[in-house]
Nucleic acid binder design. Sequence first.
DNA 1: AATGGATTCGACCGATGGTCGAAAATAAAA
DNA 2: TTTTATTTTCGACCATCGGTCGAATCCATT
Lengths: 202, 202
Amino acid sequence: MQNQTKQNQILDALQTLLEDKNIQNISVSEIAQAAGIGKGSIYYYFPSKDSIVDALVERSYEKPLETAKNLARQTSISPFTRMALIFQACRNSSSAFRSQKDSAQSDAQEEAFIRQKYMKHLISEMKPVLTDIIRQGIEEGQIHFDYPAALAEIVLIVLTVKLDNSLVPSAPEETEETIRGLISLLEKGTGNPVGSLNFLMI
Amino acid sequence: MQNQTKQNQILDALQTLLEDKNIQNISVSEIAQAAGIGKGSIYYYFPSKDSIVDALVERSYEKPLETAKNLARQTSISPFTRMALIFQACRNSSSAFRSQKDSAQSDAQEEAFIRQKYMKHLISEMKPVLTDIIRQGIEEGQIHFDYPAALAEIVLIVLTVKLDNSLVPSAPEETEETIRGLISLLEKGTGNPVGSLNFLMI
DNA sequence: AATGGATTCGACCGATGGTCGAAAATAAAA
DNA sequence: TTTTATTTTCGACCATCGGTCGAATCCATT
């Protein structure tokens, strides 16, 4: 049952390849070659090319997700501080997927395919964690809002979409303004003073 | 210069095919066959398969987008009413892309590719229009907020992502709660009374 | 009629994701 | 150790795809 190590070997190869190519331009043979195994063996460990990508996305966020879940239990720390720590952990890991474009302008459209997987995974895993923290913040009177789960999802969606910058591309200053607007909206919407949510800023 | 009619013929074929298949499973030959022309002719009117999809997305939102732009100029109507009309127009058209799943569980992951194009297109086109309306609302004292463009983008992102339901799949009641939360957040964040933004509800 | 551009077409190309059965490696049984 | 069974590896092979190409056809203008 060295499944794990062989799978990781394949995932490592894909991750390396992903650094300067988008998935659509990476063939399964190429992955096999980079992993030092035959193409057929790839399909012994994964049912499809797609599932390899899924597995890589999952593996990439195992650690920050675990960090976040641990943090969620530390009820002694202030909710805002915990949220700040979580976002920081996620941001560090997400950079692993920032592939530098092959040449001048690579069709970000194509590459967005993998980002979307990452987005789906991250939001679905993170939402319950963030919801719990917000709920605690509400109970402690630090957040005034009636829909903790919705609040968590809104923040996650906007931040993920904007920080990714491939689903809805925009200039850095535009992204910054949107984040600033989100912060302002959250502060006014949850009854918090100006500046209290600045940890969301890039 | 019957380019337009032939292109539309091809677009029609793709749209029909899209009703019970995802793009990745639709070949160019298939599109050609459905359009009643040879495969080579497809490439006389479009440079690539991808560009056909792009064109279809654009065509699908021509009318609601024009409606929205016209509405934006009708400064005599209240900003909230105009927004309500715009969202209604968009929702009607977006249903054109709701492909029923092939069988039990079709990999929504794959199909999300086209949604993402639609999302990108809709947000980039709609953002300036919505921003203008919000800005007018601010000037007229009906909206109290400092970042009109950010507000427009946040609303568009959350609504598009949630109503699409393939980027971040969730149960209907969950979607409803998120929308409700967004409404509450917007009302409190822009200094509006409860219920004033209910037009965002599905 | 003749010329020349616009349009149509399907055979063809290189490459891809995925399959397969046979070999090689490893473990279990004798 | 020898034999049998099981797991793992592999690359030739397959069907199919997106896209190209040159020949054929249409159609307007001269």
